[in-house]
Design a protein around this nucleic acid. Structure first.
Lengths: 175, 175
DNA sequence: CCTAATTACTTCACTGGCGAACTATTCTTT
DNA sequence: AAAGAATAGTTCGCCAGTGAAGTAATTAGG
C-alpha cells in the first residue's frame, strides 16, 4: 500500500475532479466522510493486527471487554448486541468463540429461561490483563501529534457526528 | 439498536471502569479510538444502505468512483489497490462485479500484456450521475451541527491521526 | 386460562474480504 | 539469449458478518 499522505492527496484530487461535474457536491463534507471511513478502517485493521495472535478479532475483543467491564462481570447476548452494533446472529458466533476459548461461560438464566448469561472466567480476566497493556503505546501513538486541546476538540466533534448520523438513520427508520 | 447517546454513555462508563484496573490506560486516547471506530462503522453501514439498491457496496462504489474520477476514465487493478486499501484478490472480485454490471470494461493492456485496464462505460457514468446526488443531503446532514471552523478543524485532526497511524504501522513493518 | 404476540437465541444460506498458492508476462543479470 | 527475479492478475479455501426462518420461553388480551 502507498504511504498515507499519497492516499490523502489522491483522494483530494479525485474528489476535486468529481466536484467539477457536480457543482452541488458538498466538497468539505464528502472529504470528511472519506477521511472518517479511511481512519476508521485503518484503525480497525491495526487493532486486529495486534489481536490476531490471541485468536480474537475486534468484535470478539470488544465483547469480551464489555463483559469484563460490566459491574457484575456478566451480560446477556441481547444486552451486548444493543451497545455493540452487532446482530444477534453474530453475537451467537462470538459467544461460541469466547466459550470455546474458555474466556466466558454460557449459562441459561434462572428467572427467564430464554436468556443466556455470559460470565467472564478467570482465564478471560487474565487474557484481558495480558492483551490490554501492550496496546497502550499504539493507542497513544495514534494521537501523539495532537495537543490536549486538539484531543478534546476531536472528542467533541466525533460525538456530534455520531449523533448526527444517528438522527439521520432514526428518521429514515420511521414508517 | 439503542440510540446513539446511550451507546456513547455506555462506552464511557465501560472504559471508565476498565481504567480503574489499569491506571496507566490512556483514557482519552482509548475513548477517541472507540469513537473513531464507532463513527467509521456507522458511516459505512449508512452509506451501504443507500448503495445496496443499486447492487453495489462501498468497495465497489469507491472503485467505480476512482475510475470515474481518473483523468482518462480508466485504471489498472494494481493502481486501484494502492489507493483504495484493498487487496488484489478483492479487486478481482470488484472488477468482476463492475464488468458484469456493464459499468466498466476489462481489456488487456497493449504495452504490458500482464496488465488489465478497466475503463468506465457510458452506463457506468450514468449510474454515477444517478447515485451521487441523492447522497448529498445525507453527507451534508452528518456534519450539519458543525460550524465551518469545526469542519476545517476535524479535517485537520483526522489527517493528523491518519498519518500517525500510518507511521506506526510503517515502523512495525520494517524488518 | 388459553391463545396470540413478543422476546431470546440459534441455524442456515449467502455476501464480503483476506492470505497463500498459481499462471503468465516482463525485467534483470550474466 | 537463457535463467532467475519481479510483477500482474486469478483461483482457492477460509473467517466474519447478515437476513430470513426456526425453536423455545414468556407476556398480553380476550
Amino acid at each position: 500500500m502507498k504511504r498515507m499522505h499519497e492516499c490523502l492527496d489522491h483522494m483530494d484530487e479525485g474528489i476535486g475532479r468529481v466536484s467539477e461535474n457536480f457543482p452541488e457536491l458538498p466538497l468539505q463534507e464528502v472529504v470528511l466522510t472519506r477521511l472518517l471511513l479511511l481512519v476508521g478502517g485503518t484503525l480497525l485493521s491495526e487493532l486486529e493486527r495486534h489481536l490476531k495472535p490471541h485468536g480474537l478479532n475486534d468484535s470478539d475483543f470488544r465483547t469480551l471487554m464489555m463483559i469484563y467491564s460490566s459491574p457484575t462481570g456478566s451480560a446477556t447476548p441481547t444486552e451486548l448486541c444493543e451497545y455493540a452494533q452487532q446482530g444477534a446472529t453474530n453475537m451467537t458466533r462470538i459467544a461460541n468463540v469466547l466459550v470455546k476459548a474458555g474466556l466466558v461461560t454460557r449459562a441459561t438464566s434462572a428467572e427467564d429461561r430464554r436468556r443466556i448469561v455470559l460470565t467472564i472466567t478467570t482465564a478471560g480476566k487474565r487474557l484481558v490483563r495480558k492483551i490490554l497493556p501492550p496496546l497502550f503505546p499504539n493507542v497513544h501513538g495514534a494521537f501523539a501529534s495532537l495537543s490536549a486541546t486538539d484531543k478534546r476538540t476531536l472528542d467533541r466533534l466525533l460525538r456530534q457526528v455520531a449523533v448526527n448520523i444517528d438522527s439521520l438513520t432514526q428518521q429514515d427508520a420511521r414508517p
